[in-house]
Design a protein around this nucleic acid. Structure first.
Length: 219
DNA sequence: TGCCAGGCCGGGT
DNA sequence: ACCCGGCATGGC
């Protein structure tokens, strides 16, 4: 009933059981942004190879990605899957960044969070989850990230129904938790960790840190 | 061996 | 305002 307590308790339970997840796994902001686009509907292990290939080719910089040929970029990120689409999306981002902020991430993140979110959503290939990941993990903006695991876990705990929209789920967290970017980032990472190990379509709830919370244990 | 993974777009209703 | 097909690799 009291969502504030429930969401805080879920967070505490996950953090206590799993510890800090140390997200986002990236050395630079552009690496983080590239990773966010590459991991769309794709296993992270496949993204890691693509990131490594970009580093090996010495193009994992705003400048490098802006100047590289799209076809060659596609080849480098092949392991990430849907690679022609993702090469186009990476180019859409760097093109937009070049035009609007002279290719400067400092200028981009100087933009007000809500305004920047709308602008990012206008870039082809950046949807709500990717935009929120960029804002949260590269910009330190307290914008909660919703993904498939987030919805699945909340649905199984009866906190949302299957028709809930991205923005509705996002609002549940943002309306009932303090706007702390560090905590939002940890919360999302913990939900993904729990989702991967205990809340996949065929997984069981054995050993899940959220097991004690009311939910549809029968799956 | 088919199903799935930290979505998103464009076209159709 | 939703709904759907397409995109594609690598792991289990």
């Amino acid at each position: 009933m009291n969502h504030r307590r429930t969401l805080q308790q879920m967070y505490d339970a996950m953090l206590d059981a799993l510890g800090p997840q140390g997200w986002w796994p990236a050395e630079t902001r552009i690496e983080m942004i590239v990773g966010a686009i590459l991991t769309q509907n794709t296993a992270w292990t496949n993204v890691e190879r693509a990131i490594a290939a970009l580093k090996e080719a010495d193009v994992l910089t705003v400048r490098g990605l802006t100047e590289i040929d799209e076809k060659r970029l596609a080849t480098l990120i092949r392991s990430a899957g849907t690679y022609r689409v993702k090469a186009r999306r990476l180019k859409a981002f760097t093109d937009w960044l070049d035009v609007t902020h002279r290719g400067d991430l400092d200028r981009m993140f100087a933009t007000d969070g809500a305004t920047l979110r709308r602008a990012l959503l206008g870039v082809s290939g950046i949807g709500p989850e990717t935009a929120d990941c960029v804002l949260l993990y590269a910009g330190d903006v307290p914008s909660f990230v919703v993904d498939a695991y987030t919805k699945r876990i909340l649905r199984r705990h009866f906190l949302i129904d299957e028709r809930s929209s991205y923005d509705e789920v996002k609002a549940i967290f943002e309306d009932r938790l303090p706007p702390d970017a560090q905590m939002f980032g940890e919360y999302h990472a913990l939900l993904v960790a729990v989702g991967k190990h205990h809340c996949r379509p065929t997984a069981t709830c054995d050993g899940c840190p959220l097991q004690t919370f009311e939910h549809d244990a029968a799956r």
